Simulated assay, not measured.
Amino acid sequence: MIHVLTLTYLTPRETVVAHMAEHKAWLREHADQGRILLSGPRPEGGAVIVTADLDDAQVRELIESDPWHKLGIASYEQLAFEGRNASPGVITAAEPDDSVLLINVATTDDAAASVAALARAVEHVSVTADGFRGSRLLTSVDGDAIVNLAAWTDRERFDAIFEDPEFMRRYEAFAETTTGAKYRLYRTSRVITPGR
């Protein structure tokens, strides 16, 4: 389950600020370990943390390890939900799993035509393929290349799309719009978050 943790300050602002460095170090440690996906202050005061896919015991351990919790600076309100959909590139698993990220780079003389053709292939995959988690199509600033970032549950399900004749027809139509294309599959090796 993904957990949204809402922090409410229980102490004066000076106390919050005095212990900010400890709390930020805690946030970064858990973000780098894949347990925290997002965090930040709320305009009306307090803060929000969005966790990776953690069970209740893991979330309780996470909260209890926060210096702000230990010092009684903030209380935590918890909301859990099943994270079924995520933007490609967002990895919700706290521990490495079998998921793969496709990075397909294609050079082109007509980025708009290449994106449109690739979108037709990916849209087919989005309604037919098991294990597909989503795709993001990017165009280079110079307009001479496009990139497809696509997330998959595992390599076997990714490989299965090449057995689908309709996908292959659409992918070949995309290839005709490019001057070259190459893809690779990747797994997360390490996460490094901003140190500020």
Rank of each mutant, 00 (worst) to 15 (best):
Arg133Asn: 15
Val105Leu: 12
Ala145Thr: 10
Val122Asp: 08
Leu102Thr: 02
Ala129Leu: 04
Ser126Gln: 06
Asp142Tyr: 07
Thr92Glu: 08
Asp142Thr: 12
Tyr76Trp: 09
Asp144Ala: 09
Ile91Lys: 11
Ala80Phe: 06
Val105Cys: 02
Trp68Lys: 04
Thr107Glu: 15
Asn104Gln: 07
Ser87Gln: 11
Asp109Cys: 03
Ala113Trp: 01
Gly72Ser: 11
Thr139Met: 13
Ile103Tyr: 13
Ser75Glu: 01
Ala93Gly: 13
Thr92Pro: 04
Asp142Lys: 12
Ile73Lys: 01
Ser87Asp: 08
Leu118Arg: 09
Asn85Pro: 03
Ser135Glu: 10
Arg120Phe: 01
His124Val: 00
Pro96Lys: 14
Ser114Tyr: 03
Ser135Lys: 10
Ile91Trp: 12
Val127Phe: 09
Ala111Thr: 09
Ser126Ile: 05
Ala80Ile: 03
Gly72Pro: 06
Ser135Gly: 05
His124Cys: 04
Tyr76Gly: 01
Arg133Val: 04
Gly134Phe: 06
Ser135Leu: 03
Asp98Gln: 15
Ala94Ile: 07
Ile91Thr: 10
Thr139Glu: 13
Ser126Asn: 08
Gly83Trp: 08
Val90Asn: 10
Asp130Lys: 14
Val90Trp: 11
Asp97His: 03
Thr128Tyr: 03
Phe81Val: 02
Ala117Leu: 05
Thr139Gln: 13
Glu123Phe: 09
Phe81His: 09
Ala74Ile: 02
Ala86Leu: 14
Leu71Val: 07
Asp98Thr: 12
Val127Glu: 12
Ile103Ser: 15
His69Ser: 07
Gly134Thr: 08
Arg136Trp: 12
Gly72Glu: 03
Glu82His: 09
Leu79Gly: 05
Leu102Gln: 11
Lys70Gly: 06
Ala119Phe: 06
Leu101Glu: 12
Arg136Ala: 12
Glu123Ile: 05
Ala145Phe: 00
Leu79Lys: 13
Leu79Tyr: 12
Ala117Pro: 00
Glu77His: 08
Ala111His: 07
Ser135Gln: 08
Ser126Ala: 14
Gly83Lys: 03
Lys70Thr: 11
Glu77Ile: 02
His124Asp: 06
Arg133Ser: 06
Asp130Phe: 02
Ser99Leu: 10
Leu79Asn: 10
Ala106Val: 02
Asn85Ile: 13
Ser99Gly: 15
Ala145Arg: 15
Ala119Ser: 11
Ala111Asn: 04
Pro96Phe: 07
Asn85Ser: 11
Glu123Val: 05
Ser126Val: 02
Glu123Gly: 12
Ala111Ile: 08
Gly143His: 07
Ile103Val: 15
Asp98Arg: 13
Leu138Trp: 04
Ile91Gly: 07
Ile73Gln: 00
Ile103Asp: 08
Leu102Gly: 01
Leu71Arg: 14
Ala116Asp: 14
Leu138Phe: 10
Ser114Ile: 01
Gln78Asn: 14
Glu95Leu: 13
Ala117Tyr: 00
Leu102Lys: 05
Ala145Cys: 02
Lys70Leu: 11
Arg84His: 10
Ser75Gly: 08
Val122Gly: 05
